[in-house]
Amino acid sequence: MIRLDSLGVRLVDRRRGDRRWVLKDVSLCVPTGCIYGLVGPGAAGKSVLLKTVVGLLEVEEGLVALDAIDVGQAAPLELELLRRRIGMAFQNNALFDDLTVADNIAFPLRRLFSPSDDEVREKVKERLDCVTLSGFQDRMPAGLSGGQKKRVAFARATITRPPFLILDEPAAGLDPVSSQRLFDLIKRDVTASGSTCLAVSSDLDRLLPICDRVGVLVNGQLLFDGTVAEARNAADPRVYQFINGLPDGPL
């Protein structure tokens, strides 16, 4: 379970030279095994929220808990142990330029679990097959298309079969067919592994059908937290406009 309680995060605004609230008073709960879609307009704080959940950004106020562990208060060793249970696909893919596809996918496995070479090879092959990139293990990230990079990033995030899966724009910039295939893959994989998934995407048409719950974040505030059906008929005009993709409205 992922639980956020009155979360507040401030980041340095370089232009103004001070720290500004990017998230304030955000509370939500992602039950175990649930796919939670976090959506909202640009610069709403979605990526900041994901990075705070995995402990990459400091919790200024409130609580972020993964199962019973308070991420904000975790000691370095505790955080390291917690990260063995997290897989994350980043918005920019974050593939290591100087490593092959196989080494990129195997990186979290090698770093966090020190398995044997045979075990690494076997798991990398299984993940490559899963994302339909068999035979790509020796390619470098620079030689991959946008969709292939996204799939490698997903394979890397899931190679350790983490209980918590965090996906930041997993299909950004992909054509509709590749995007649909990737979301189908996410649904299949998360259902099979029983992971708790928190996913951010601007592609609502493809994200919402695979979600159990959805949250709408606007200007650092969580305006809505509920099921997809509830979101489509939300009373808040901003949520209603955003979820239904209407051009006219308060947003």
Binding site: L56, R83, M88, A94, L95, P108
Partner: peptide, 11 residues
């Protein structure tokens, strides 16, 4: 490109 974040996430 968030590669440093990815490193940190892998301890």
């Amino acid at each position: 490109t968030e590669q440093v974040d990815a490193l940190r996430l892998c301890a």
